[in-house]
Structure formats: structure tokens, C-alpha cells
């Protein structure tokens, strides 16, 4: 235990306590060619570690990673020529140079044939809207512009696999939409396999058909989004509009918010029937309007994370 007490400081100096954390454990994951896989989990679950393993930046202690028939670490030089990596919190652009210069640098270092370079350059300039910023210094770009440029840079050599680690972190709605649309189009038209991590579940659902949820370095769920919803909970949201301002008390439902006669409840459809709740409400007040819908995926997953957090503490 480390503390500021002198005795602990000396104890730590003589016999430091080192905790070894297993970032990933027993991961068995196959991504098919042309598939888009969303990779999610709470902070520290192992998402970025997986991206690093797939990029050849990390070697697993046990087990193996194979991609495109290669070992990402042993065959690194050949392998990285077939993948594109974007880390949302980093940039591959040369800071004091125009984007155009970074692109030219990539062409030379990656040895991209002229025809391919021109074709991909035209594509990314058009679809990611780079024309206005093509000759702007990287350090003068906004975060959204920089991410678009970074994504474009990662695609210039026409990779077969695209690894995106939180590519929309800190971006506004417009910049997010632009990047998501582009990645979807890239996957649809060119069959690029994509592994993308994010904390934004709605965004992941929009992008990927399949989601892999990590918890403490292990796969907690691997399937499609609809299946995730079904497995996790039958959670629904019920909104009642009543003549009186006070919300009726409904057994089996939790009042989430109330505002001027409009009351929102959360309930588990697997346990409570909607008709029972409506009967309860009608018995105590005039119900003017009813709305019901599934809980947003973000809330469903947040509940799951909270459940995991409580479980581990």
C-alpha cells in the first residue's frame, strides 16, 4: 500500500508492491473480411490494447494474433502496409507542415504507386471534404478537421483493414457524421474490414452490424446489436401525459422524470406488462396520451457497465 507515511515510503522503496494487470484474457475473436466490428467496453476494458495488438504495436504474452495470414509483430513491415490505423488522441500528421506535405511523405515512405495514390487522394479529398484545408498547417486545424485529415492519411495506401481507436473523440455532430458516413461507404464499396472502438453506442450501432463488448479484458458479449438489447434487458420507456401534474405511482416502474403533466417511467418488459401499468395509471388519473419505446442503446449499456462496476467492487 502506498501512502505519504515515511514508513510506507521506505517499505515501498525496499520492497515495491507491483500489481500485474492482465489487459486481455482469453480473447477469441475472428473478424471476417469486409466486416465492421464495433469494439466497446468501459474505460480500461482492453479496447486500445486490442487495437495495438492488431496493429503490431504489442505482442501477446500468450496466444497469437493473425491478420491477413500474417503475424502483426513478426511480419510487421509487410503487415502494416495492408492496414490503416487511426488513434483518436494522436495524429500522424506532421505538425508544422501542410496536410499536403504529410500526404506526400506517406506516399514516399509507404511506397504507394502513383496511380493508386492519385485515385485514393481524389477519393479522400472529395468524400472527407479536404479541399479547403489541404494546404493548411496541421497545427492550425480544428480537431474535427485534423481527424478527417488523419483518417484520409490512414487510407492513402488503400488498406484492407482499418483500425479506428475512438476516431470521433471530441468531434462535433457534423464532423462525426461525415466520418461515420465515409467509413460506412468505404466498407460498402471497397470491402474494407473495420474494427472501431468508441464509447458512443449509438454511433457504433450506426456503423457496425456486430458488437463485441469487453469487460475486464474478457469478451462479455459478441453478437449483433438487436441481440445485445434482447440479452441485456427488456428495458422500455413509458411516457404518460396526464390531466393532473402529479405523477401516478406505478408498481413495477421507476419514475425517471416529470414535467408539467408529462411523466417518464422506465420498466422491464420481461417482468411487467405494459397493460398492467396502463391500468394502474388509468385507475388513479386521466391519461391523455401514452408513448412507449425501447431505451436508447447508450442507456442500456451504461446500466450494464454500472452493474459490472458494482459487481467488481
Amino acid at each position: 500500500m502506498r501512502s505519504a507515511r515515511a514508513v510506507d515510503l521506505f517499505r515501498n522503496l525496499l520492497r515495491p508492491r507491483i500489481r500485474v494487470v492482465e489487459a486481455l484474457r482469453g480473447i477469441d475473436l475472428t473478424v471476417r473480411r469486409g466486416e465492421v466490428v464495433a469494439y466497446a467496453g468501459p474505460n480500461g476494458a482492453g479496447k486500445s490494447t486490442t487495437i495495438k495488438l492488431l496493429s503490431g504495436l504489442l505482442a501477446p504474452d500468450v496466444g497469437c494474433v493473425r491478420a491477413l495470414g500474417m503475424d502483426p509483430v513478426r511480419d510487421r513491415v509487410r503487415y502494416v502496409g495492408h492496414i490503416g490505423v487511426v488513434f483518436g488522441q494522436r495524429t500522424e500528421l506532421w505538425w508544422d507542415h501542410p496536410i499536403a506535405a504529410s500526404f506526400e511523405w506517406k506516399r514516399v515512405v509507404w511506397g504507394i504507386p502513383d496511380a493508386r495514390y492519385e485515385r485514393m487522394l481524389g477519393l479522400v479529398r472529395e468524400l472527407l471534404g479536404l479541399d479547403d484545408i489541404f494546404h493548411t498547417l496541421a497545427r492550425e486545424l480544428s480537431l474535427g478537421q485534423r481527424m478527417r485529415a488523419d483518417l484520409a492519411l490512414a487510407l492513402l495506401h488503400e488498406p484492407e483493414i482499418l483500425l479506428l481507436d475512438e476516431p470521433t473523440l471530441g468531434l462535433d455532430v457534423l464532423a462525426r457524421r461525415r466520418i461515420l458516413t465515409f467509413v460506412k461507404e468505404l466498407n460498402r464499396e471497397r470491402g474494407v474490414s473495420v474494427v472501431v472502438t468508441s464509447h458512443d453506442m449509438a454511433e457504433l450501432e450506426q456503423l457496425a452490424g456486430r458488437i463485441v463488448l469487453l469487460h475486464e479484458g474478457e469478451i462479455a458479449f459478441d453478437g449483433i446489436f438487436a441481440e445485445l438489447r434482447r440479452v441485456l434487458t427488456g428495458r422500455r420507456v413509458l411516457t404518460l401525459e396526464t390531466s393532473s401534474g402529479a405523477p401516478p405511482v406505478l408498481r413495477g416502474a421507476v419514475l425517471v422524470r416529470t414535467d408539467a403533466g408529462r411523466h417518464e417511467y422506465a420498466f422491464d418488459a420481461a417482468r411487467v406488462k405494459l397493460s398492467d401499468l396502463l391500468e394502474q395509471a388509468a385507475a388513479v388519473t386521466d391519461v391523455l396520451d401514452v408513448e412507449t419505446h425501447r431505451a436508447p442503446i447508450d442507456e442500456v449499456v451504461a446500466d450494464l457497465y454500472e452493474h459490472w462496476l458494482r459487481g467488481s467492487s
Binding site: 495495438k52 496493429s55 504495436l57 513491415v77 509487410r78 502494416v80 502496409g81 490505423v85 500522424e92 515512405v109
Partner: peptide, 10 residues
């Protein structure tokens, strides 16, 4: 070093 390791050269 990650920036160097994602380049296709030794």
C-alpha cells in the same frame, strides 16, 4: 515509438 512502428519499414 508507435509512430515509427506503424510504418512499413524496418
Amino acid at each position: 515509438l508507435d509512430h515509427l512502428l506503424v510504418q512499413p519499414q524496418p
